[in-house]
């Protein structure tokens, strides 16, 4: 859709765009450019000299076993978060879309966790599963399960996955519900008259029609798990114990902010940027295709 009626003006449009463009240039493009630039540089141990090292930072990063471990961990973490958050959201959305009494109340009660910050979600889970003060943490220990996510890496991973997925369910729920409600009732009625039972209707009619929503959400959830969960990990485990919950983004933070290794941190940033760009492009490709069909 293209507007054909417009206003005349030479200076005004630039003035209207200026604030957005200035902020974008200073705080987005300049730093992103710097990240790319610095990813090709290396500083000596005392910060006295800087030299151009080409792709060496990148090679160091991808040859570093601990980075590769973090990458693998990120994959497991993000996959689990996305699967858990999408699966439970879809299940709840299908239930809430049924014609039952109190459906609106259910919806409201499932939507509000969207407002909870990832870091706060982590804190709430900490209150529940802290080995000493948490209700469930103590319960587990009481049952003879040695539970302490601060010492046990797998338990720590489980905690950050649960807290991260918990926070994301309501977001997915909202979109799945909107997707379900946009399916024309007549299509479902036709399927019912064709003799399809509810379960069959779900898998043969509803799920295929929801798949664009699901795909969109998958990308959003992966991006969320890559980046926004920094708050969860930082407040719950600080990447530990050891490096058990150190994801790629946490690693960038550790190398850049704590270890002050600009070159390596920048190279990692650039790799992540490429990842986001790839995900976004895939998403837009897919959305475009969806428009055609």
């Amino acid at each position: 859709m293209r507007k054909k009626v417009i206003f005349k003006g030479t200076l005004l449009p630039y003035l209207l765009l200026a604030p957005q463009l200035v902020i974008t240039a200073i705080f987005f493009f300049w730093p992103a450019g710097q990240a790319v630039y610095q990813s090709f540089l290396r500083e000596d141990a005392f910060g006295n000299s800087v030299q151009f090292v080409g792709l060496e930072n990148f090679l160091d990063v991808v040859n570093d076993q601990t980075w590769l471990d973090a990458a693998g961990r990120t994959l497991v973490f993000s996959g689990s978060v996305a699967a858990l958050a999408l699966g439970s959201a879809l299940f709840l959305a299908v239930q809430a879309d049924k014609h039952i009494r109190g459906a609106d109340v259910y919806k409201t009660l499932l939507i509000w966790p969207y407002a909870v910050a990832p870091a706060i979600a982590a804190v709430l889970w900490l209150f529940m599963f802290h080995p000493n003060i948490g209700l469930f943490g103590r319960m587990l220990n009481g049952l003879g399960v040695p539970w302490d996510y601060r010492l046990n890496g797998s338990q720590a991973m489980l905690m950050v996955i649960m807290a991260s997925a918990w926070k994301q369910v309501s977001y997915n729920f909202i979109f799945f519900l909107a997707g379900l409600q946009s399916i024309p009732r007549s299509v479902l009625e036709a399927a019912a008259i064709d003799g399809a039972r509810p379960a069959r209707r779900f898998w043969t009619i509803i799920f295929p029609l929801l798949s664009p929503t699901a795909f969109f959400l998958l990308v959003v959830n992966l991006v969320y798990a890559f980046f926004d969960t920094f708050g969860v990990i930082h407040s719950l485990t600080h990447g530990g114990p050891g490096k058990a919950t150190e994801t790629l983004i946490y690693r960038v933070y550790v190398d850049g902010v704590i270890n002050v290794n600009f070159g390596s941190s920048s190279a990692q940033s650039v790799i992540l940027m490429i990842l986001v760009v790839a995900l976004t492009v895939i998403q837009f490709r897919y959305v475009e295709r969806k428009v055609h069909y």
Partner: peptide, 27 residues
Amino acid sequence: FRFPLRMVFFWLIFITLMLPVEVRIIP
């Protein structure tokens, strides 16, 4: 409005979608 570089500006704004704070912390 229609003005020179309109779409360039639009795309400049658009691609910031792909640059979350997290990936450009240090600079």
